[in-house]
Amino acid sequence: MVEPPIIALEHIFFSYTEQTPLFADICFAFNRDDKIGFFGPNGKGKTTLFRLIVGLIKPEKGQVLFRGVPVHTENQWRELRCAVGFVLQNADDQLFCPTVLDDVAFGPLNLGLAPDEAKKRALETLKTLGLEGLENRLTHTLSGGEKKLVSLASVMSMRPDALLLDEPTNGLDPEAKARLVAILKNLPTARITISHDWDFLMEISHSFMTINNGKLIDVDSDFFMRPPHIY
C-alpha cells in the first residue's frame, strides 16, 4: 500500500479580500521525505499557505487532508498541528513563556508527557541545536538570533513529522546560519522552507516551488543557475 502524503491540499481557493484572490485551485502533496524550498516575492501568499496547511485560516473552497483523511474537527486540526511544526516568521510571537526552558517544554507537555520527561526532552533539544546554557535565560533577554533558534527548538521538541519554516534565517549571523544549515541537513524530518536567501535554500532543499498567478509551480534546481530569474 502506498503511504498517503502527510499533508495534501485539494482544490484550495483562498483570498483575504475579494479584489485580490491569493490562491485559485491549488493542489499539492507533501510527502514523508520532501525537503522543499519555497520562494517568491513579498506578499504573494507564502505565509498564508502555511497558515492554511495548519488550519489557522480555512479555505473558501477545497480541503486539507492529513495522512489521507480530510480534516474537519478542531481535534483533528490539533492532531495535525502536533505532527506538523510551524516555526513562525516572528520569534517574539512564538516564545510566550518567561523562560526558555518553559517555552521549549510547552509543546511536549501539551503532547501529554510527564513534567520531568518534558524537561528532559526540552534540554535534549536545546543541546542538539547547540543552545545548551540558555535554558534558564529569561526569554525577553535573548538576542534576535537566539530567539529565532529557540523558537525552532520549541517546535522541534515536539518531534514533529514535518516542519514548516517561515524565513528561518532572518536575523541570523553567518555563523548561526551555518549551524542551522548543518542541523537541517542532518535532520530527516520532511520540511518546507520559505526563504529569500538563495544559497541557504539551495543547501537545505531537494526540490523547489514558487507561487505564480495563484498557483504553486514546481521549479527545478538549475533554474537558479540561469541568470534572469522571474523576479
Binding site: 489557522l56 498541528r81 513562525l88 510571537d93 503532547l111 520531568d116
Partner: peptide, 20 residues
C-alpha cells in the same frame, strides 16, 4: 498571534508546567 502560536503547539486550554 500568540494565541495562534499556542494552538500550533497543541495547546487546548489546559495549563501544564514542568515545575515539580
Amino acid at each position: 498571534r500568540v494565541y495562534e502560536a499556542m494552538q500550533l503547539r497543541g495547546f487546548c486550554g489546559k495549563f501544564r508546567s514542568i515545575a515539580l
